[in-house]
Every structure is written in C-alpha cells, then in structure tokens.
Design a protein around this nucleic acid. Structure first.
Lengths: 113, 113
DNA sequence: AGGTTTGTTCTATAAAGTAGAATAAATAAG
DNA sequence: CTTATTTATTCTACTTTATAGAACAAACCT
C-alpha cells in the first residue's frame, strides 16, 4: 500500500530521461536539469539517483559503444521501464487531482499544449 | 540559485493545507493524505514536515481556541505564506513544462477542470 | 607511450521522510 | 475535585533521499 511514490529528484530525473529519449545518460541529464531549472545538481547526485531508480526497477541501463567523438569513456544510456512510466503517471494524476481542487492552482486551457 | 525546491512530502502537505483551508491542522492533514493517496503517513511525519516548512517560511501556524467538541488539546492551524504559494507555483510550472515536452504525458483539455 | 577528453564510481555528509511512544490539554463523569 | 477519556502535539531514534566532489576508467589523439 504505502511506499510507492517517487522522491523529488527521482521524478525530475525520470522526466528528463523521457525528454532526452535516446540521448539520456549521466552528463546529459545533469546539463538538462541545469537548463530546465537552473538548479545545480552534481554528477554524483545524478548517478546515485539513477542507480537507486534502476534497483527499484523504474529504469534500465546499457552501455553504448564507441562514438564518433573526440574520446572519453562509454556512455551509460538510461531507459524508463513500464513500472517507471506508471510511477510518473501516478504522480501526475495525484498532482492534477489536488491542483484542480484548489482554485488558484487549477489547470486551465492555457496550461495545455 | 539552487536549493529552493520542495521535497515530495513537503509539496503534498502544502497542497493539502490549501485544500483544507480553515481546517488545516496535523490530524486533518494526515487523514486527508490518507484519503487522497491511500498512503499512510504517520502523525510524526506530518508534524516534522510542517515544522520544517514553517522554519523555511513557507507556512505559519497559530493555535486555535477551545472548541465545542468532546475534549482534546488545542489545534495548531496551518496557513500557507506567500513564499509557500510561490514555491507551489514554481513546482507546478516545472512539471507542466516538462510534461508538455513529453507527448505521452502532455496536458490535454481532459485534464482541465 | 603519454596526454586529453568524456564519462562513471566511490565515499562522506546533510537533509528529508518514517515511525510510534510519550506527553499535554481540554472536557466529562463520578 | 479527582480520575478517565478524548483529541492533539512533541519528542526521539532511525532509514531513505539528496548533495558534493574527488578518484578512477576508458576512449581517442599525437
């Protein structure tokens, strides 16, 4: 019953991974968080959180091959699992439900894409 | 720059306080979280989080007077400050922004009230 | 081989969240 | 007026998340 919700950074990282699609790996996630939120999360924080999410089954990782770039280690690419997607949907539903019960925060058509 | 975001429970509690309006105090918050999310947060967790939010200036508290009920101690009523409201708005904006960049999570008119 | 670049791992600490027992204050009952 | 009952907050100990950055690893270039 309890203990299925995402931490704040866990949720943010899952969302950013979805946004980055095929280019989701540690450093890219860190940069994307920085550009979306002007928040400075360190690379250690990103990997720590990613590891936790993987051990919970909310995402999977796989190392990429050699690249065409200058040099550097192989990237560890992240992919959301269906359990991870479900967790994001639940979180969205909870917030939407609460916002819409509070007039000053309710969703309007201005919020839709 | 960094360190202005809400924890997961912090945000949930602020939203519930807004929803409860004049009846926001420890036990009521606990029950409301239970009914909105079927999550069992203990009363210690609620008060601990409320205290942290108050010390951050995101909410204020004041004890109520005697009631017309059976017995029991005075309630400590909680009220969101403008800084608290601002934090909630920022959090909403961040999520809306990310969801709308991800087709499977984007807000549609079905999500509006 | 040595240097540079890109990236992950590791280790230590602080903050947030969890849990429930202890305590307090108000009213009712005897 | 003393004791019991109800409603509620405080307190204390612990676990999980989040923060921070140094250490380490692997790929490419010269």
């Amino acid at each position: 019953m309890s203990k299925d919700h995402l931490g704040e950074l866990e949720e943010l990282i899952l969302l950013v991974i979805l946004k980055l699609e095929e280019q989701a790996y540690g450093l890219a996630i860190q940069k994307e968080i920085q550009s979306e939120t002007s928040r400075n999360v360190t690379i250690g924080a990103v990997h720590g959180t990613v590891n936790r999410l993987e051990s919970k089954g909310l995402l999977e990782s796989a190392f990429g091959g050699a690249t065409e770039e200058r040099g550097g280690r192989r990237k560890r690419f992240l992919k959301i699992t269906s359990a991870g997607m479900e967790a994001l949907r639940q979180s969205k539903e909870l917030r939407l439900g609460l916002w819409n019960q509070i007039p000053s925060l309710a969703i309007t058509k201005d919020d839709t894409q």
